[in-house]
Design a protein around this nucleic acid. Structure first.
Lengths: 305, 305
DNA sequence: GACAGGGTTGAAAATATCTTTCAAAGGTGA
DNA sequence: TCACCTTTGAAAGATATTTTCAACCCTGTC
């Protein structure tokens, strides 16, 4: 008889996904007093109820286990266990609904958990922006040049120097002759050695860092293929760049210097460049990668486990 | 033992809501064969597994109930029942979030546009996983220690050395005495100088890089507060760490070495740490940041436009 | 190559949870 | 007031989960 009622309501009985509150309202009139109390508790606090056992929910609502099970049945589930699973799902769903509450700037008094959420969100945003704004034609050209280069020089100072080093390390690892110059003077000195068939890469967020522009200019004059990775595609550095890869510029706040998001953006561009080159030089890159991995293995102490 | 591990990972045990797949990847290496099978099934088909009982899941994975329960425990839940609820929540969550089109691994013959899209997506994923898996209690403790430290030493080699440098640069910029050591020998030599009230930070993805563990051990023995930033919360490095910050481990492919996503993850953690410290030392950090910005201004040539 | 020692595993017992049963309590109309 | 039907919860019964423990399988050692 309880069964008849359930059937008559939900037809061929697909358990309710998220429309649980609505179902409770619809069915409330056909419920007995005790069952209504249970249904009310369930609709009011899905997350809380999901954490309770039958006995717990029975006590909370001042009823018995049997009533709770009956209510679950009426709502269209085979038993309380399944209602509970549905509640957990509903709770998670509600949770995600109120996610975009932390889009504001990071404030001095933000709790640490908010800082993590905001920072992660901002960096994700930066990645999406960068990917959207990256010119694949320019990237393809840069990849082609780097893949066949006799030698690759990379320039970056300050925060960008880390990105330059990262690219240098990775290219070296797949067997290319690449070097990241951190000292501006040495960079210029070395740039003089470049010639056609070589590649020079300048990384500068502002697009106007003299220490990075100068070696690129020299390389350009010497006939090397020059690439600029910058957030200002109209900046001075692009004068001497055959190919320009644009990084995105995110809003910055007092506590979150621009260096943070520009770094994220630059690294993505550099990674794309690297993967592109690795694809093009796969025959030599794959064994080189494997070899460098092997070489490092002994530096790790055995696992504790 | 199983218990220690769980505790060391999730602090005082806030069960994971949506970061389950990430957690599975992070903990997979420390799992036994049978447990890995279970974890794999769970991560691969949360919705399907949520519909199964312990016995059902045990049969599906060809293991026993005991193993399923053990796996649930390792993942941070009190038992299978709770894991199941979390799975139901995750399933509901996935239901709502639209699946991206380019989730596959990067292949040798992918067009450059796909490489960009996949890479950006993967790194976004890594950020989300890292944020979800980061223990804010541990982070808070690390921030507190670093904010009041007399001196901060940072250790990292290989790809992690760039992250170490990044953190060092930023902390210096807000007026803290921080130094990133790249030479393992010098790192140990300097670690001997540390004492109570100082902070030592080790960055290693594998958690077992001897060159990084050694200076941390020395610092630990000297009474300094030690922090480990690692992808292996059960690795040897955590022996000597007062606070462990876990980075996420993303799936890697032949062309996309693990170093790439671990770097992204490490940088996010380091940024969170930095912002946290900047908040705590706002009085001195804000003017210091402004001053360093001023100091750099003259290095940029005037804009062309 | 045999062996000790520790980690890994699943069968089965023990426990917790859920479901069903059934008789008593509560309500309703004659 | 009483007969009858509905609602309800205690307790028994059925499932699911957790724990225990002995066998098993490695791995490194002599």
């Amino acid at each position: 008889m309880t069964n008849d009622l359930k059937e008559s309501f939900s037809g061929d009985a697909p358990p309710a996904p998220a429309a649980l509150a609505a179902k409770v309202r619809t069915l409330a009139p056909s419920m007995t007093r005790s069952m209504q109390r249970v249904a009310e508790a369930v609709a009011g606090d899905p997350a809380g109820c999901a954490a309770l056992t039958v006995t717990g929910l029975a006590e909370l609502t001042g009823t018995s286990e049997a009533t709770v099970v009956r209510t679950a049945r009426l709502l269209g589930y085979p038993g309380y266990r399944d209602l509970r699973l549905a509640l957990a799902g509903l709770a998670a769903h509600q949770q995600s609904g109120r996610a975009p509450s932390v889009t504001a700037d990071i404030a001095v008094d933000d709790p640490i958990a908010d800082v993590v959420a905001k920072l992660a969100f901002d960096e994700q945003q930066t990645l999406a922006d960068t990917a959207a704004g990256l010119d694949t034609v320019q990237l393809g050209a840069a990849v082609a040049a780097a893949s066949t280069a006799r030698r690759i020089d990379i320039y970056g100072v300050g925060a960008s120097s880390l990105v330059a080093q990262d690219l240098g390390q990775k290219l070296l690892r797949i067997g290319l002759i690449a070097h990241a110059h951190m000292d501006p003077h040495l960079a210029v000195t070395n740039a003089v050695q470049l010639r056609s068939g070589d590649v020079a890469i300048a990384i500068t967020h502002s697009g106007s860092t003299g220490d990075v522009i100068e070696p690129l200019r020299v390389a350009f004059d010497r006939g090397a293929t020059t690439i600029a990775i910058t957030g200002r595609p109209d900046g001075p550095v692009t004068q001497y760049a055959d190919h320009v890869l644009t990084t995105s510029t995110a809003r910055e706040s007092e506590l979150r210097p621009a260096a943070m998001s520009s770094r994220t953006s630059q690294l993505l561009v550099v990674d794309c460049l690297f993967i592109g080159v690795a694809q093009r030089t796969y025959e030599t890159a794959a064994p080189a990668l494997a070899a460098s991995y092997e070489a490092l293995a002994h530096r790790h102490t055995p696992r504790t486990r």
